[in-house]
Amino acid sequence: MKTINVKINGENYTREINEDMRLLDFIRDELKLYGTKEGCGEGECGACTVIMDGVTVNSCMVMAFQANNKEILTIEGMEDEKGLHPIQQAFLDEGAVQCGFCIPGMVLSAKALLDKNPKPSRKEIKEGISGNLCRCTGYNKIVDSIEKASQYLEGEDQ
């Protein structure tokens, strides 16, 4: 057993965990945050994407103890008192969500991209989400939403 301290969606958690626990299971089973999905469990699909200290990671490939003293954002942390995050709103407005299984990961990859590059080209957006597989949407409306989110965020900044 090991004790870890992690900040997830702005809240501090201290937990005793098994050393072989994956971050994904810590998030889902320990903290009961079920927005993070498990697709492949081997780092290929991006359904389990979370943002750790500003960069996206596949939480199925990170051990929970590696998150010690780190700051993590999951899909549950995107919404605030004002409501949905502009990226989430853009996904809704563009009709980019079909079954939804890939969407938490997509939204977080989009956030990590837009944080670094607020006005990405379509090519850059496609690169930014190329680690997130989607079986339903053919990606085009997701790319549209990230473009729209970039406009929404620009509007907010002004």
């Binding site: 081997e42 989400i129 990606y139």
Partner: peptide, 14 residues
């Protein structure tokens, strides 16, 4: 039987 050898399109392929 896994995404390493069963490849599906990514955003870059579309």
């Amino acid at each position: 039987n896994r995404f390493t050898n069963y490849l599906i399109p990514t955003a870059l392929d579309m």
